[in-house]
Design a protein around this nucleic acid. Structure first.
Lengths: 136, 136
DNA sequence: TGATAAATTGTAATCACTACAAACAACGCG
DNA sequence: CGCGTTGTTTGTAGTGATTACAATTTATCA
């Protein structure tokens, strides 16, 4: 937990219980939840936690690169506790979002000359392994 | 324009003036507008056109693969008249969105075994060539 | 410990988007 | 060509995720 506190401090963010709870939960759960899902998950252990605080927190964490935001659905924003570049596969049948590793250099090679990448997202829609074989 | 009519018919969509107007405009303008921007652009030539119709139309076109939807900003959905796979670069300074070609095979190679891609988006944030050299 | 600046909270507002029902128009069939 | 069916358009009213705001609380540092 000291590590998480340090992360916050190095970004100039004050360390609060709420931020630690949100940040810790995102790091420990390799899913891609909405703000509301995070809130519901934390509420039992953190009574009084406000949904607004969850929104404020994920916004602050994302602005400082500690977590990532995913615009997969148009209607709702999702968050990802793993800030390093990686791809996301969205199965159109089961809806599951699967992470996969990417090599940022591969992506960089696709860019026009002079463009400087800072963050890249590779997002693929299709059928996941389970749904493709009809096992779901 | 006959080509566009055919595209609509082959998707089982009825050919209406409104759909042709939206589709034609998206094909001719290589930008990434929101529904509202499309509406404002078409209104002078198409008085009475409803914003709801623009929303309905882009939804129908996207569902049939004639155009693409871009979830670049969390707050608003953008559309792209070019349905083939290609990447998008979003400059964090000037906000411009630049297209760049990608090889779908490169992306496919990154996927876990058994996953079947159907549509892929490569989205990169950073500095565009103009902003990187300080010329903006 | 006390000052100060930032974070939290709850409520109210915003804004992109959608549901809905009535009016209308495209397409197929005679 | 005219008619009926069915899909489309339109305006309005809603929805739901997200944010603005002001009051209260709390982290941080001297």
């Amino acid at each position: 937990m000291k590590r998480l506190e340090n992360d916050l401090r190095q970004c100039g963010l004050r360390v609060t219980e709420q931020r630690l709870a949100v940040y810790d939960w995102l790091r420990k759960h390799p899913v891609h939840p909405t703000a509301d899902v995070i809130w519901q998950a934390l509420l039992p252990e953190n009574p009084g936690l406000s949904l607004t605080t969850v929104y404020n927190t994920v916004k602050a964490l994302a602005e400082h690169g500690l977590i990532r935001t995913l615009n997969i659905d148009a209607s709702e924003q999702r968050f990802d506790g793993e800030p390093a570049d990686h791809g996301h596969f969205h199965c159109r049948l089961c809806g599951e979002i699967t992470d996969f590793p990417i090599d940022p250099e591969d992506v960089q090679g696709m860019l026009p000359k002079g463009f400087i990448p800072e963050q890249c997202d590779v997002f693929v829609r299709g059928l996941c392994a389970g749904c493709a074989t009809g096992k779901n």
